[in-house]
Design a binder for these strands. Structure first.
Lengths: 211, 211
DNA sequence: TAGATTGTTAATCGATTAACAATC
DNA sequence: TAGATTGTTAATCGATTAACAATC
């Protein structure tokens, strides 16, 4: 009977997590919703409401213990677990993601890259091996794969996503410029549309100029 | 006396633009809000409301002319203009962005990369030159720079962003894992936090498993 | 104990959806 | 003209903010 938590709230959690991490690094032990709200530029009310979706992590008259809250949000976000990522598409973006060491701090470990380009066969990125696409099925069957990052051209994204889902991959991190409509409700999809982001920026630039 | 248009609406515009582009490619000339809503999985009401923030682009009894609407949204988003991008941080992600040819279709042209790594000095990515960071100021003064993409480590992002803004760069596309608080209201900032996106995905995976 | 600050309910605000008159 | 579909107003829904009693 879990009440459904809105994605608006979920989207803010990583940000809280980041600020709490910074507070921890700065040696700060406790913080009130009011102080945090000033730093983050959100209302204290929103912070308290957001957190109370998951439980009462604070204490009246005291505030929140930074380390404790950090750890709790970590659990909520699942960054206390290990997530195995494969990257399908070993072009520039795929390799950039594979090189992103910091993801590992949050439990996200890349275990393989895949591509169709035979020139890449057997190469490695940060000791992560690049496989040929025709080895994908075998790899997924023989290894745990929690997340598949799709960094190939959009023309191939749909087919590969469907294939991966059939093979049981539970989550898709999609960088291809298409909306993946997964009929399978058990699959989680997160889209990163860089050109959309750029267009939003562009809109705001143009608007700003007119003012 | 322009009524302010909410960012929720702006965020959806690139998606409309993409679907209309696909319709155009498929040779479809007209579309009703109802048909489009079925394809995009949003309500027809929302489509009509969103578009009417910017003008009446449709016609009763007919619907919307695909090509016309595509062009109009293009203008709204500013993709009919040329935007000069520089990329500060020529690591994997920076080079990946520089290699992203498709941005040019929307008018976003990368003109230079910058890095501190002297090994990169004079190298090029897709014929785009990599400069040393100490050449940044001169470059910005001598060339038009509409957008600066920040792909360096977060420890340096704040300082460089401030410097760029002082030099008159009107927009920051920030990939560093910090919130850039630009006191200057004339600067537009768009954040792309990949680890936040990954954490949101992770949350949904864990939630999904529990159901 | 007094002061501080949470957790939570109630009020407000904004965004989405429904409805329908206008009109092509 | 009749049918289709927009543009727009009104109704609903959900998210944010304010307020305050509970409590450390």
């Amino acid at each position: 009977m879990n009440k459904e938590i809105s994605q608006a709230v979920i989207r803010r959690m990583p940000r809280y997590y980041r600020y709490l991490g910074e507070l921890m690094d700065a040696g700060i032990e406790r913080i009130s919703s009011n102080d945090l709200s000033a730093r983050m530029n959100v209302t204290a009310s929103q912070i308290r409401q957001d957190l109370n979706n998951f439980g009462g992590f604070g204490q009246q008259g005291y505030g929140y213990n930074v380390k404790y809250l950090y750890d709790e949000i970590g659990k909520i976000l699942g960054v206390n677990r290990k997530h195995h990522i494969i990257i399908v598409g070993a072009g520039n973006l795929g390799q950039a993601l594979a090189n992103y060491v910091k993801f590992e701090k949050f439990g996200f470990v890349t275990t393989a890259l895949f591509d169709v380009d035979t020139k890449l066969k057997g190469q490695t990125v940060r000791n992560i091996k690049i496989y040929m696409l025709d080895e994908l099925e075998r790899f997924v069957k023989e290894n745990t794969v929690d997340i598949a990052a799709l960094t190939m051209p959009k023309s191939k994204a749909e087919a590969i996503a469907n294939h991966l889902v059939e093979l049981g991959v539970p989550a898709i991190w999609n960088f291809a410029h298409v909306d993946l409509k997964m009929e399978n409700k058990n699959v989680v999809v997160e889209n990163v549309h860089l050109s959309d982001s750029l267009m939003q920026l562009s809109y705001n630039i143009v608007k700003n100029r007119q003012e």
